[in-house]
Write a protein that binds this DNA or RNA. Structure first.
Lengths: 208, 208
DNA sequence: ATATAATAAGAACATGAGTTCGGTAATATA
DNA sequence: TATATTACCGAACTCATGTTCTTATTATAT
């Protein structure tokens, strides 16, 4: 039985690898060859078993009709729209959410499972250091134009033409943009000069 | 010609939707039906055009041999192997990297572009708070058994049967596992009682 | 041991599905 | 207007590919 699970293990891994490599699932014969199995019927047999165990779904009579469960092909690739200054407001924020192929990062699908679009920004500066977000991190933003008091948001300063990452506090005619860095002071701007671009829903950091 | 691009646009969108919905690409006839096209040859014609324009790749003589470019099917899905205590060493770390379908998260492909396998751990506790890693974060780990002095690692304490997230400092016969939390003390363990499971290469956080 | 079920093999079958080809319509070019 | 180019049709062709059937090998249990 140890050898039993082995074969199905092999098959699963082969399928996953094949899909990653080709972009489409393997045929029964691809699997047969890839796993050194003598007969297509054996593949069929094990695929059926794996299917019943819930590891994959099969579409009858459909070529390559295999879908690995939990292997959701939902790319969850989100566009990387630019950078935000977390210190002094600095860089630009292009309005065009156009397909910036290659300028994108992949994130956990749960980020995107909502309605509004999601994108990422590269953080410059350490104004949100106390929120454990530092220079070089990526923040995942969900597009929305309104924010609750205290939300961490990407705000577009119209006049300055800059995007900044701060906590949002409306105060009558003006807005307080509060950094999370005890050594930095809040920024006060006219409410008409601020446009909320979205709320921070995630952080992503890469170590070298 | 406006109507021209329209058809190819339709086809592209149909393919993307089909893949997301089924987990495998559509056949020529699927596209024909889905886009209300009169003949399979028309589909073939336009697929060839799209292929030449670089929108997709086709595998000759292969059923459903369509791969959308930029739609990189490289899942970059990495297994979520469990949790690490970042405070006191606490939970378990199953040795079997077996297929824990559903227990996985997706990350930026650049995390995985290396050689050794990569997996994720759910962080429990705040021992790495000064490294801006907090309770609830996910750390992305690259499997490796050796670590450089000062590396942030997931270490398996053999005797305690626990995984812990600390910085690694070998000190002769023993090893100092240093938390990044000014209010916590390092742990000293016998060198033979420590097994490096991997090095932290990324952090992922989700906000509610 | 012997029965029974679980796996594996091999081959043949049926059809899903990519491709080809002759021909037409629409558009562009001369 | 003539002619080339591009886009579309239909149908047939051929092979890729899922499925099934029969017969060997194992396992597992009684």
């Amino acid at each position: 039985m140890t050898n039993l699970r082995q074969r199905q293990q092999d098959i699963l891994e082969f399928i996953a690898g094949f899909i990653d490599g080709h972009g489409y699932p393997p045929s029964v014969r691809d699997i047969q060859e890839g796993c050194s199995i003598s007969s297509t019927s054996v593949v069929d047999y094990n695929l059926e078993a794996l299917s019943k165990m819930g590891y994959l779904k099969r579409s009858k009579e459909i070529s390559r009709g295999i879908e690995l469960v939990g292997h959701r092909s939902n790319k969850t690739r989100i566009p990387l729209l630019g950078s935000v200054s977390a210190g002094q407001p600095l860089p630009v924020f292009p309005e065009d959410h156009r397909f910036l192929e290659d300028n994108s990062i992949e994130v956990d699908p749960s980020f995107v499972e909502q309605q509004s679009p999601v994108f990422a920004l590269h953080v410059k500066g350490n104004s949100m250091i106390d929120a454990l977000i530092k220079d070089g991190d990526y923040v995942v933003i969900r597009s929305q134009e309104h924010a609750e008091t205290g939300d961490m948001v990407a705000a577009w300063l119209i006049q300055e033409e800059e995007t900044t990452l701060k906590r949002f506090f409306p105060e009558g005619e003006r807005v307080r943009l509060q950094p999370e860095n005890s050594s930095m002071s809040p920024i006060f701007v006219d409410a008409h000069n601020v446009q909320i671009k979205g709320r921070v829903v995630g952080v992503l950091r890469k170590y070298k």
